[in-house]
């Protein structure tokens, strides 16, 4: 089933903090894609999936216009897995040079709160979530 229409209607309206200010321009497609993922919010907490530590790695194939994202999730029963994957695809396909996105799910090592970035912790504290 294609949940796209439903998701497109439900993902709006969230205030996501702006991405970090990067000093240097992104060197390659993988880095451009990784930076774009700062604009994908976790569906439950108002921080990006990068700051939450869900993005384990990004690979880019400039010639093929393809990006592979290695993702993990906080729990095996995370009810938001489909939402997150949809949002990742949606955001990356907005990059002019990207025509194909592959997502690889990884469970090892297991996600823990230690994976949350310093910036993510600060943002979570600002909304009353202690990690």
């Amino acid at each position: 089933m294609d949940f796209g229409a439903v998701l497109r209607e439900t993902q709006g309206g969230r205030d996501l903090p702006p991405p970090p200010a990067f000093a240097e321009p992104a060197a390659d497609l993988a880095e451009r894609a990784r930076r774009a993922l700062y604009e994908v919010a976790d569906p439950e907490f108002p921080i990006s999936i990068v700051d939450l530590g869900l993005v384990r790695g990004v690979e880019g194939d400039e010639e093929a216009g393809a990006v592979t994202v290695h993702l993990t999730f906080t729990a095996t029963a995370c009810p938001c897995m489909d939402f997150i994957q949809w949002d990742v695809r949606e955001r990356l396909l907005q990059l002019d040079e990207v025509g194909k996105v592959e997502i690889v799910t990884e469970w090892d090592p297991p996600w823990t709160t230690a994976a949350i970035s310093a910036r993510g912790r600060k943002l979570l504290r600002s909304v009353g979530v202690v990690t």
Binding site: A75, T76, E106, W107, D108, P109, P110, W111
Partner: peptide, 11 residues
């Protein structure tokens, strides 16, 4: 399966 079991056992 090896790469999934650690997460399962942690939960």
């Amino acid at each position: 399966i090896h790469y999934k079991v650690r997460k399962l056992l942690e939960e």
